[in-house]
Amino acid sequence: MKRAVRGLIAHEMRAPGSLGRWVAGRRHGVREGDHAAPYTGPQTAMMYGLLFVAVVETVALAVLIPWPLVHGIVLVLDAYTVLMVLALHAGCVTRPHVVGADGSLRIRYGALFDLRIAGATIAAVRVERRYPDGGLIRFDPADDGILDLVVGSQTTVRVELTAPVTFVRPLGRRGRARVIRFHADEPEALVRAFARARGHLPWRGDRTPAPPLP
């Protein structure tokens, strides 16, 4: 419980930084020579829809609630909701997945999930389009250690590892996965970036020719 509370507090403390980077057009953790892979495509419309509903609710309640104290409390709560939705989306935009120039991989979902994988641990990577049910993270230790990081009810990239890696869920629980499936808006470009960074890495794509290795 304490770990979950700490995770939520840490996320909220990162919110202003995410909004600031979004406004400034900067990205977090992307160095020169790295490949940044966005993943917000499937959720952008939903995020802006939530923002629209929150703003409409704020305006409606401002008109309907006659009591100043209640009106003030509701206004603060609604403004906080709008800020958090914006911060969540800003975090996802400014914290893309990263293919390192050294062949490493950083898989993220805003400030809620961050998994770094050393290049030496990666056995294979390929484009694999799946549409799993459920929320952001799906993990069953009995299911061959497969971790799904789902965005918009889909994953598009599969990474197979030589040994399990430890990941931390948004509320602090830990697990160990040997296969990670996640979404990238342009999965073929991400896989090509791996091929360029790690010339000996197997490249497998769905209906996309393998690029020449350097």
Rank of each mutant, 00 (worst) to 15 (best):
V168Y: 00
D78N: 10
Y39P: 06
V150G: 01
H183M: 14
L136A: 13
T208M: 03
H183Y: 12
A124F: 13
H71R: 15
A36G: 04
A184L: 10
A60T: 08
R31I: 12
F139M: 05
V59T: 07
E128L: 15
R3Q: 05
K2G: 08
L61E: 12
V76H: 09
A118F: 00
E57I: 08
V56N: 01
R181W: 01
A45T: 11
H71Y: 09
V179S: 09
A118P: 07
E12D: 11
R108H: 05
L147G: 00
T81Q: 06
D78E: 10
F52D: 02
L171M: 05
A10L: 03
P209E: 00
G72A: 15
T166V: 12
M13H: 15
Y109F: 15
W22G: 07
R196S: 01
L115I: 05
G72T: 15
V159D: 02
T40R: 00
I65G: 08
P164G: 02
G7M: 02
V76W: 14
A197K: 01
A111T: 07
A90I: 06
P202E: 06
F52N: 01
R6D: 04
V5W: 03
L51N: 01
A118N: 07
L86N: 09
T94P: 00
H89M: 13
L136G: 06
D102W: 14
G20H: 09
P16K: 09
D206K: 04
D206H: 09
G103P: 07
P164M: 14
G103M: 08
D206C: 04
A163E: 15
P68E: 13
L112K: 03
P214I: 10
L61M: 10
A54K: 01
V165E: 07
G119R: 02
E186W: 15
H28S: 15
A123Q: 06
L64V: 14
D140Y: 10
L50Q: 04
A120G: 08
R129V: 14
H200W: 03
T58V: 02
R3K: 08
D140A: 10
L201I: 06
T166H: 08
D133M: 04
R181S: 08
A163T: 13
E12I: 06
A195C: 03
G199K: 01
H28R: 15
P209T: 04
V159H: 05
F194S: 06
Q43E: 11
Y80R: 10
D102Q: 08
P214A: 04
G25E: 06
I122F: 11
H89S: 03
R204V: 05
G152M: 09
R196V: 10
K2A: 11
P212Y: 07
T81S: 12
G72S: 14
A120N: 06
E128V: 14
H71S: 12
P187M: 13
G41R: 12
A163N: 08
V151D: 13
A24W: 15
H71D: 11
A118V: 04
L51S: 03
I9S: 07
L77Y: 13
R169I: 02
V55K: 02
M1L: 11
R196T: 03
A60I: 12
R204M: 06
Y80E: 07
R176Y: 01
R108G: 06
